[in-house]
Design a protein around this nucleic acid. Structure first.
Lengths: 345, 345
DNA sequence: GATTAGCACTCAACATAAGAGAGTGCTAAC
DNA sequence: GTTAGCACTCTCTTATGTTGAGTGCTAATC
């Protein structure tokens, strides 16, 4: 059986209607609401065909039709028109996003917040992996006689600091030298490579003279580095699901919440996704618990290199067109904003 | 009418039963389950009295009795026995809490997490207000020709850093001098006092020589300081409410979630609470939306001075005895842990 | 005089039945 | 190929018992 022009038109009408109303739609209502130029009976026949082709399903015998995952896929691939983000909205987004671009994580968090507000879905943002990021700078700063702050700066501008409490007192002069030596040794090295044991060993040899201080500091230094490799997941708009009819059922809402609460899992799922705009619909999701959700994600870059993720999760019935456009717009915006931060203009 | 020994015994039984089962309890069931030595009819009479006194309510004519807020208050004040936290649990808490005490915020977040796990309620922790905290240290560190990191350290050991992007290039030497001058000017001053305009003006005069760099840095410096004054609210165990019968109703669950999502409001409520263990039950809460919840909070101290909050929120029907003990134990633990961090031992 | 048995009454919760409404699939006519 | 007509299906709503746990009152009992 073939997917005729007319079938497509009907399918589109059904998707449009269902995305709006969340109610199964029947032939009679469809013919009344949409000017298709054919009678309900004909629509019924076409609908039966569409169902046979896998584009529609039937909640029960005497209910209207509902688009299947396959229908949404078809819609997203062939029928959907990218609708440009309205000027006013663009301006609003730019405003709130580019406020204080220097605090990377805050900006990314803000992006998730904004995205959830606009789409009324649950939004998330993942900070980039920093494995290939190179170390620029290590600084040990005295606070008091037993406390120092360890500060690490990467080439991409990420800063991390930890307060260290030493077992014994220290000499400020030695601390300064140690900072310089560490910097000298590690500058330009990728964070992940520093964590490999052999490199550390080799450096420890060089620094033997200060072994006492080293002993105190080295473990924390490595811990901090490891911490810098971790990505951060920001999730916003969790309560939005309460205004989505799909989750009017307490049990479903529960499941959804619980699923989203497993942060490591979500992080993994997002992390494994490819670059660019990506839409996975219902059953297409590899994660079992997401099989009745859709995921729309995009990637943004920092200084054209490190890749973070931005996206929404919601019911398969979502406004793919506008959601996609907004996510695309926002991720592009992030990428350019973060480019300016790093490169001189 | 007087609150006789026997009435108290009945009230206690009702509270015990209701806290456990969440179901209204009738005279017959009560006499069967608890060995009170009197017949259902007598219990009925006593219950009627207790209701008249305001300790019990009636969901509807033919239902059992339910303790009122007043009953819980009576229970908490006069009937409840503090039950010590089990040894094993104490050890577990200490273990997880004292892991890496130097990252203050992480530790506090961990406390909230732990508390929600143990109580199966929604837990939160508020970091202390830093107004009276004194500045110790300001450092401007070069990153590249247009980027510097501004780092501020307080006497309590709080560190904050911001990446600044300057409009023009700078001289490393000048940056160093500026750091020293800023530190010299502000060391020992309370953060909040620095934000008062006159002080700033006076310093700006002194530093005129470096006005160019100042112009670039001063606004960000103040912003960062302001950021340091903000308290952070950690909330954990939101999904726990799904296993509480009170929130089996979707609408109620919604309301609760939405209420908890207003972070500024919660922060304000917590902030206004006094020191020590504090229990507010239902109607006792000043916040309109919390009038069918109970709040149990405690305060912890950092270096014996700054005060943060730790607590849970849940239905008025909660295990006040064990919840209170755990919160008390944890806040004490935090206070001593944070004392060791700051003072040399 | 306090306690208890007995009894009529109440009300939520559950089950059952009936009817409406929106839908389908099939057949036969256009 | 398209459509009208019709029997059928299934959810949803509303009405109507029925049950059971509970109450409050009264009168008998300890």
């Amino acid at each position: 059986m073939e997917l005729t022009e007319r079938k497509l038109k009907i399918l589109q009408a059904i998707i449009d209607d269902f995305v709006f109303s969340a109610e199964p739609i029947g032939s009679r209502t469809l013919s009344k609401k949409y000017d298709l130029g054919i009678s309900p009976a004909t629509i019924r026949n076409e609908m039966a065909d569409l169902e046979e082709l896998g584009y529609l399903t039937h909640p029960h015998t005497s209910a209207g039709r509902v688009p299947s995952d396959k229908a949404y896929r078809m819609y997203v691939d062939n029928m959907m028109e990218r609708r440009p983000v309205p000027e006013a909205q663009q301006a609003a987004i730019r405003n709130r996003l580019n406020d204080n671009i220097y605090e990377l994580n805050k900006t990314i968090e803000r992006a998730a917040e904004l995205l959830s507000e606009i789409t009324n879905l649950t939004a998330f943002a993942l900070t980039p992996k920093e494995d290939t990021n190179r170390l620029k700078y290590i600084n040990l700063l005295p606070v008091d006689d037993r406390t120092v702050v360890l500060m690490i700066v990467t080439e991409s501008g990420k800063v991390s600091n930890t307060v260290l409490r030493l077992k014994t007192g220290y000499d400020t002069r030695k601390l300064e030298i140690l900072s310089k030596m560490l910097t000298y040794n590690y500058r330009g090295k990728e964070l992940s490579s520093i964590l490999e044991v052999d490199i550390i060993k080799s450096v420890e040899g060089d620094l033997e003279a200060m072994s006492h201080l080293m002993e105190n500091i080295m473990p924390e230094f490595l811990k901090t580095l490891e911490g810098m490799l971790d990505t951060e997941l920001y999730m916003e708009g969790l309560t939005n699901i309460f205004s989505i009819p799909e989750y009017n059922d307490l049990d479903k809402a529960k499941m959804f919440m619980r699923m989203l609460n497993k942060k490591e899992r979500i992080t993994k799922v997002l992390d494994e996704r490819g670059e660019g705009i990506l839409i996975t619909i219902g059953e297409e999701n590899s994660d079992e618990e997401m099989k009745d959700c859709s995921l729309v994600t995009a990637t943004y870059r920092i200084n054209g290199k490190l890749v973070g993720k931005l996206g929404v999760i919601g019911p398969t019935r979502m406004k793919y067109d506008s959601v996609t456009s907004i996510i695309e717009f926002m991720s592009d915006n992030l990428s350019t904003a973060f480019k300016l931060t790093e490169n001189s203009e």
